[in-house]
């Protein structure tokens, strides 16, 4: 007799059943691997220029070269690394804030819940670019004032970190709403009440009883936040507020390449490869998110 599969095993089976999601995972794995190996795979330094300016794709440069003669493939891989990092860190920040906010609101309930969620509503209805721009401009002022005088080598790192955190900090609203909805229904379940009756503290109840039960929803939502954050970074790059040169993200590469869409001379590789890679990356992440949702859907077992 077969042992009853655990919920995790059932979820894994359901995920495997969706070919789209599986292929997307394989693709994502390859891209991640490529971006991690990056320069050592192509043999070029992503920031080293060469004589070959604007070379079309050749056997040496598979994706051609840019204005400084830098190998585009290498820059794409390194840029993907940054983009994925933005996605991961941004989504993680959104996750932490959103989960804590949503859990607290629902668990405490009453007026606090009302106030906290009204706050979310208000933020939701304002353009988040406002907060990102204010944050970045404040930080730039700070960094030019103090860091340039004392530790100029930290400016780039600071900007990058700030960008990650700020993007995450404007992406947590949906997470908070979803988590709150889940916790509201869990709060009155027998196992939670039992735990409370046995004298467990609030933190313990939240961490031990509630958190594990909302994990599925959170993972699904997280997988949908990552592509949104990556796209948001590309939008900031277009505004000139993205990753700082000479570093590149997929967003900055596309924003640079967008100028190639002109009637006189199109260096197609400069826009085609970055846009294609971003689109397929986002696509893969969306498919994986959909797959996870089906796999972790509690209703699916019925």
């Amino acid at each position: 007799m077969q042992p009853t599969p655990t919920p995790n095993q059932r979820a894994w089976r359901r995920f495997r059943g969706q070919h789209r999601a599986v292929w997307a995972t394989v693709f994502l794995g390859l891209v991640v691997l490529g971006s991690l190996l990056g320069p050592s795979l192509t043999g070029f330094d992503p920031n080293a220029g060469g004589e070959l300016q604007y070379a079309a794709p050749t056997a040496a440069h598979w994706c051609g070269t840019d204005v400084h003669g830098r190998d585009l493939l290498t820059r794409l891989l390194v840029g993907t690394r940054i983009s994925l990092l933005v996605g991961a860190v941004g989504a993680a920040v959104a996750l932490v804030i959103g989960v804590i906010w949503g859990m607290t609101a629902a668990y405490v309930g009453g007026r606090v819940d009302n106030l906290m969620m009204r706050f979310v509503d208000v933020l939701y209805s304002l353009p988040n670019i406002l907060f990102v721009m204010l944050g970045l401009i404040t930080l730039e002022a700070f960094s030019t004032r103090y860091l340039n005088a004392h530790a100029p080598e930290l400016v780039a790192t600071l900007h990058l970190t700030a960008l990650f955190v700020l993007i995450g900090a404007v992406s947590w609203l949906n997470m908070a709403r979803i988590v709150r909805g889940q916790v509201l229904s869990l709060r009155t379940r027998p196992f939670v009440l039992a735990s409370q009756a046995l004298g467990a503290g609030h933190i313990r109840v939240l961490a031990r009883q509630i958190l594990p039960n909302i994990l599925g929803v959170v993972i699904v939502y997280l997988s949908l936040t990552i592509p949104a954050v990556i796209l948001y970074e590309s939008f900031l790059s277009f505004l000139g507020r993205g990753i700082r040169p000479p570093q590149a993200s997929l967003g900055t590469l596309i924003a640079d390449g967008a100028a190639q869409l002109n009637p006189l001379r199109i260096r197609w590789w400069l826009v085609g490869f970055p846009a294609g890679l971003l689109a397929s990356l986002l696509l893969a992440l969306t498919f994986i998110g959909d797959g996870l949702r089906v796999a972790l859907d509690p209703k699916a077992d019925r």
């Binding site: 592509p227 277009f238 689109a279 397929s280 986002l282």
Partner: peptide
Amino acid sequence: GVCVPSFIVGPLLIL
């Protein structure tokens, strides 16, 4: 719509 940034879609439409 979700995977291609609008600053690529826009110039493409123009072109």
